[in-house]
Design a protein around this nucleic acid. Structure first.
Length: 282
DNA sequence: GGCTGGCCCTGTACGC
DNA sequence: TGCGTACAGGGCCAGC
């Protein structure tokens, strides 16, 4: 008989969520803005092959929308956009090996530097589109408000959650109520707000608390340079520091930092979920 | 139109 | 020691 596998932080992967992508964006922006791509390569897979379309494009500002990186580009006056999703194991950097086994794309700049996209598990994606044309990226096209946008209020979150019968955590991960929340920060925010991840209805007061918790955990993540449990690295190769602040994610079997009860784990709509049965009873 | 579940993909941990 | 299997999960898509 198989023993149940331990579920602790050693098994977690640090998936790039909003704080990690924002940290990458801040590293890329001063480097890429004003550069011209002189050569490029993309893995033949449909997920990455578009990378080579960026040859001879001038690059501009680097934006972030949810977990997507958007790099302004132009060619012969035609405004275009490089869209990168890091997936689960995607890394961008200048110090990565362009010939490495998990390199999926690279772009050589006119100053001799090379931006490399490494993605071991190939859940990431690279697209080159006309600026603002996100029709081929349905999740990006349907993203909810940015969490730091003034429009993202408790009332707005309550309305969004009330419009669906999805479990609250599943709904958050869909990116529709708010952009950028992934598994780690969803668990953390729900724990902070005392909301059961399996709940299908969240009242106005709890939605307000959840909104505040989402903003707080994401802001803390950004301030700490992201969460690194295994894969995530910033553009300069440095690890994030946010993992030491986690109260819930990856702490299955440990005592809740608020009530002392034992944190539990379950699979919710296919996603591993850690929660406190006492603090998050409903 | 909304929801559910399966698929993609590979490194790692663990059982045998 | 080595092999086989389960597991991690964001986004997409088919089916209901």
């Amino acid at each position: 008989m198989r023993r149940p596998r331990r579920r602790d932080a050693r098994y977690g992967r640090s998936v790039p969520e909003l704080p990690e992508v924002e940290t990458v964006r801040r590293g890329l922006a001063p480097w890429l803005d004003g550069r011209v791509v002189t050569d490029a390569w993309g893995d033949p897979s449909p997920k990455f092959v578009a990378a080579s379309e960026l040859i001879d494009h001038a690059l501009g500002a680097v934006h972030r929308r949810g977990k997507y990186l958007l790099v302004d580009a132009s060619h012969d006056g035609r405004p275009r956009e490089l869209v990168i999703h890091l997936g689960m194991t995607g890394q961008l950097g200048a110090d990565l090996d362009p010939d490495g086994p998990h390199t999926r794309a690279w772009w050589r700049m006119d100053d001799g530097t090379t931006l490399v996209f490494r993605d071991v598990r190939q859940f990431g994606r690279v697209s080159v589109v006309d600026a603002g044309d996100h029709a081929g990226l349905p999740t990006l096209a349907a993203l909810g408000p940015e969490p730091f946008d003034p429009a993202f209020t408790g009332a707005a979150l309550h309305r969004a959650l009330a419009a669906s019968r999805l479990r609250v955590k599943t709904h958050l991960l869909s990116q529709r109520p708010v952009a950028g929340v992934g598994n780690i920060y969803a668990d953390e925010a729900l724990w902070r707000a005392g909301v059961n991840p399996a709940a299908r209805r969240v009242g106005p007061a709890r939605a307000e608390a959840l909104r505040d918790a989402i903003v707080d955990v994401l802001a803390l993540g950004i301030a700490n340079g992201g969460t690194t449990l295994r894969d995530y690295r910033g553009v300069d190769g440095s690890a994030g520091r946010n993992q030491s602040t986690l109260d819930c994610y990856g702490r299955t079997g440990q005592a809740c930092n608020r009530c002392g009860d034992t944190l539990r784990h379950r699979v919710l709509d296919g996603r591993g979920t850690t929660w406190c049965p006492t603090c998050q009873s409903h």
